[in-house]
Design a protein around this nucleic acid. Structure first.
Lengths: 200, 200
DNA sequence: TACATTAACGACCGATCGTTTGTATATATG
DNA sequence: CATATATACAAACGATCGGTCGTTAATGTA
């Protein structure tokens, strides 16, 4: 059998394009070279496979987006590094649909059940993480005291997320420049020390 | 028969939640009180109904979001009015899924065909429209000359669009405050005349 | 060799999908 | 009144879906 991990990797890739529900077991079977019924030896039903795929995607996001940002010095530089790390993940096309969570969250946000709950928790964790980086930067005096944590976290997230739709519907790379500069200029306007961030 | 318009209105509402493909003819039939096969007297196939639904949604968006903004004075005030008009559309819950185009564009952005082409064109028109308002504001000296039209248009759009996911996955109204303040602060920072925009 | 266990499979099930077909009804026209 | 046309319908079709079942092949153990 193809290893469980390889199947999940395929599932996350396909789901980043078609969604977790649009991903049919038949397509996943032929894509991984196995049979449809072979899945049920590893997963109770489709929902369990969806939940495991989410877990796999969370791990991938943590390793490839969050971890690199944590190697930057704490403060506003780390916050901007997180934004750039995310844009790099999109630019490199790690997933064929660019972002698993973007596709899945719009698919399940009004479909109650365990899958939606898990997605909501993952997105909440992400938002909380950005907010914590903002708070850290503020505590180090690298952002003006008046900054609202949740407010700035929303802006950073929004300016990064919209990249997906643009990159898929229009051309591509130019929107990455816009997304990068938007956050950079915003942070520079709030940061007392202009040497901490690149000029452009 | 229920009028063609009423069916399209229902279709747009349902598609704002489930998507245009997830919207099944059977559900649409029972939701409108007609029979499944009755549709084929009005629409050749499902794709034609999808295209007409898009047309209906474009008209709704033009009337309820674009038109009110055009009643504001040209320049930076009109640009901000467009943002607020969009947020009002979301806050009032005109559509059960909040935004038809958000759902549909993530559904079709990598599924080639006439539906995708029409969606891409509508989104392109929207982006072009925002860019034109930015250019107008600049021409009137209400925005700094250094402002890049496409750059600022991207920011305004991104900060408005992310509202949808947040409002559906977490609580609700607070994200509308974030979205409004994000654009307001950004525009105030670029506008030489501080009296043109509200303080908060 | 004999036997238990496991992984993977082909075949099939009921449900739902978009679509086609034939038909009943209502309206308009001569 | 007779007839033609438009409108909506129920019923059924083939395809595809998630899921079940019984079987086969491989492996480990005695």
């Amino acid at each position: 059998m193809r290893s469980r991990e390889a199947i999940l990797a395929q599932a996350v890739g396909l789901a980043s394009v078609e969604g977790l529900e649009g991903l049919s077991l038949g397509k996943l079977a032929t894509a991984t070279g196995t049979s449809k019924s072979g899945f049920f030896a590893h997963w109770r039903d489709k929902e369990q496979l969806q939940l495991d795929a989410i877990e796999w995607a969370v791990r991938q996001w943590t390793e490839q987006v969050v971890a690199p940002a944590l190697r930057a010095p704490a403060g506003v530089r780390r916050l901007f590094a997180l934004h750039e790390s995310r844009l790099r993940f999109y630019r490199q096309g790690v997933l064929p649909g660019r972002c698993f969570f973007f596709t899945v969250q719009t698919e399940f946000d009004d479909r109650p059940g365990p899958v939606r709950d898990r997605v909501a928790q993952a997105m909440g964790d992400w938002q909380t993480f950005i907010r914590r980086l903002v708070a850290e930067a503020k505590a180090r005096g690298e952002l003006l005291d008046g900054v609202d944590d949740a407010q700035l976290a929303y802006e950073v997230d929004a300016l990064g997320e919209r990249v997906i739709s643009h990159i898929r519907l229009y051309d591509g790379p130019v929107v990455l420049v816009h997304a990068r500069r938007a956050v950079l200029q915003r942070l520079r306007a709030l940061c007392p020390d202009p040497t901490l961030l690149p000029e452009d």
